[in-house]
């Protein structure tokens, strides 16, 4: 699968990143290569293979149900762009 220049412009807009005209063609080529590799991988028959949840041959360690965190709100909010009444302020979103 290969991409058109228009696809790159659209992806860049969705990802909210600016891509210069010069690097656009190189990016198009590199992303197309990655997609090509995925096509190759998808040709492999995996019917009898269980999906792998994690590459490590280990299982999750659990923690005891104990409150260990203290209130560090003031520290956290010092690096937030906008706060008020203890709330983090973000651009208005209504779903």
């Amino acid at each position: 699968m290969s991409l058109e220049q228009g696809d790159i412009a659209k992806l860049a807009r969705l990802a909210r990143i600016r891509i210069s005209e010069e690097s656009s063609e190189e990016l198009r080529q590199r992303i197309s290569d990655i997609l090509g590799m995925i096509d190759t991988m998808q040709a492999v028959n995996t019917d009898a293979v269980d999906p792998m949840a994690n590459p490590h041959d280990a299982t999750q360690r659990l923690r005891a149900d104990v409150v260990t965190e203290v209130d560090q709100r003031d520290d956290f909010q010092r690096i937030a762009p906008a706060t008020e009444d203890g709330l983090y302020l973000v651009p208005k979103v209504i779903d």
């Binding site: 906008a82 983090y88 979103v93």
Partner: peptide, 13 residues
């Protein structure tokens, strides 16, 4: 999310 008016922004708890 609190959508009351925080100067046109939303407050998050």
């Amino acid at each position: 999310s609190l959508h009351e008016d925080f100067h046109g922004m939303s407050g998050i708890d």
